[in-house]
Amino acid sequence: MLQLVFRRLLVGFSTLFVVISLTFFLMRFLPGGPFDRERQIPPAIQANLEARYHLNEPLYVQYGLYLNDIFHGDLGPSYKYQSRRVNDIVAESFWNSFKIGLSALILGTLAGILLGTLAGTTQNRFLDGLLSLFGISSLSMPSFIFGGMLVLLFALKLKWLPAARLETPLHYLLPVCSLALVPFAYAFLLVRTSVLETRRKGFVMIKRSFGINETTVVMSHILRNSLLPLLSIMGPLAAAIVTGSFAVEFIFAIPGLGKHFITAVGNRDYTLVMGITLVFSVILILFNTLTDVLYGVLDPRLRESARGEGD
């Protein structure tokens, strides 16, 4: 068990190191610096600016300084918003992304479990087929198109809900639904297959032959055994939420991490880009490690063969 945790943490830390180095060097080798503007700045000012942010030092010195800062929990100053620190921008936008992302993850997974169980247990082949088509459609629907359609229908045509920004709880409805689509699709397809498989297992037949009523069989025997595989896709689900948040924050003009990332790439705001990438990586690594460890706790067979090869 400890070995499993240790392995995952090792992979986690090497991933973080790769992320930091990769983003650092990619950003530095990009043509054009953060202070190249259309309007020419006097060379002296340009030099002062670069000196202030250590951009005139050799690359390895900059890299060392950056690593040192990160080690002390400091993501550095923003190059674009010159009076602000990356830590503040990230902290501020993180909550917007976090609230939407977590609600979407919970909503999508719950809906997926519900409909997945329904599709897996129903005797009605038509209903199952319909739900499965719905599931594969959700998987195929890009979040930006789904979000766009929701806005078009509920905000512009019917005028029931606001189209953008996060002000009242009502504002959360459309972005959360758009973002929940992918987790829903993953959870639905997985739970349906898993329920179908569990239904054929011997112990379920035995329970049934005892005359236990169908609802109890489904709720306490089939479902309990079918939900374990769901843990294994929590990592990919979190990744899907992160990916989806870019498009959803773009559509709904939400000042979250994804929106800031897009702007920062355009502004060549090195430190902000790196800071946001780092935050997302930490979230993904935490999720992966947590689900692997939980998996190990819930399924003892995995502890024996703990090879840390989870997704």
Partner: peptide, 15 residues
């Protein structure tokens, strides 16, 4: 394993 844990979309954007 390491590549799987990278935030894919962001790295694709950077690349």
């Amino acid at each position: 394993d390491v590549i799987y844990s990278l935030p894919g979309l962001m790295i694709v954007i950077l690349f």
